[in-house]
Computed example of a mutant assay.
Amino acid sequence: MSAATAMPGDLARWVTRTVGPVSEVRSASRERAGSRVWEVIVRTDVRYFVKVAPEPAFYTRETFAYRHVVPVLGGGRAAALVDSSPRRPAMVLTAVDGVPLDRRSLSHGVRREAHRQAGTLLRGAFFGGYGRRLSEAEQHALVCFAAADAAGCLARGARNGGRPVTERGRRTVDRLMKGAYA
């Protein structure tokens, strides 16, 4: 394992306890600040991804999505959460075939539609279990969460030179201004 792919010792031990003896580790981090992702292969040639969230809020949001949204998609259509550790804050995910949306060459319109569908799915998964319309307080919370997410994206994008993150923040602000969350 080279320094570029080296996984911290306590994280590697946790991964081994979770999925069994690891035979290979490769960096799968993206070209952005704070990205810490590894692809691990266990002795049975099964692949997993280990992801350490850069901030507790990201960990909370992602583990929520893996627990409550991904099951709605059906088996094999998205990575599944194998285990998570809030102390690290890390996740072990199954590997699925395909290319992540942000690594595909798609038109702006197709990419926007994919994000719109994901937002609709997340909103339905998050609030669908209630079996009722959102209360005024829940609706207000949804708008607040969207605004907080937009502010975070704009700040992170500006700080790290992350154009896609900044654009996501701007799109969320545009949707807020149009009343999409009302």
Rank of each mutant, 00 (worst) to 15 (best):
1 M>W: 08
3 A>F: 15
4 A>Y: 12
5 T>W: 11
6 A>P: 01
6 A>N: 05
8 P>L: 12
10 D>T: 15
11 L>G: 03
12 A>K: 11
12 A>W: 04
14 W>Q: 09
17 R>N: 14
17 R>S: 11
18 T>D: 09
19 V>G: 05
20 G>S: 10
23 S>K: 07
25 V>G: 13
28 A>P: 10
30 R>A: 14
30 R>D: 14
31 E>S: 08
31 E>D: 09
37 V>E: 00
39 E>P: 05
40 V>G: 00
42 V>R: 05
44 T>Q: 04
44 T>F: 02
45 D>L: 04
45 D>H: 04
47 R>C: 01
51 K>F: 01
53 A>T: 02
57 A>K: 07
58 F>Y: 12
60 T>P: 03
60 T>V: 10
61 R>Q: 09
67 R>E: 05
68 H>K: 09
69 V>L: 13
69 V>Q: 08
71 P>R: 07
71 P>Q: 09
77 R>T: 10
81 L>M: 11
82 V>F: 11
86 P>S: 14
88 R>Y: 15
88 R>E: 15
96 V>S: 04
101 L>W: 03
102 D>M: 12
106 L>M: 13
107 S>W: 04
110 V>L: 10
110 V>G: 02
111 R>N: 10
113 E>G: 05
113 E>A: 13
117 Q>C: 08
118 A>E: 10
118 A>Q: 09
121 L>T: 03
121 L>M: 04
122 L>N: 04
125 A>I: 00
125 A>Q: 03
128 G>S: 01
130 Y>F: 00
133 R>V: 05
134 L>A: 11
134 L>I: 08
135 S>E: 10
136 E>N: 14
138 E>H: 01
140 H>Y: 14
140 H>K: 14
148 A>F: 03
149 D>F: 04
149 D>N: 04
151 A>R: 09
153 C>T: 05
159 R>Y: 12
160 N>C: 13
161 G>V: 10
169 G>H: 02
170 R>H: 02
171 R>N: 09
172 T>A: 02
176 L>F: 05
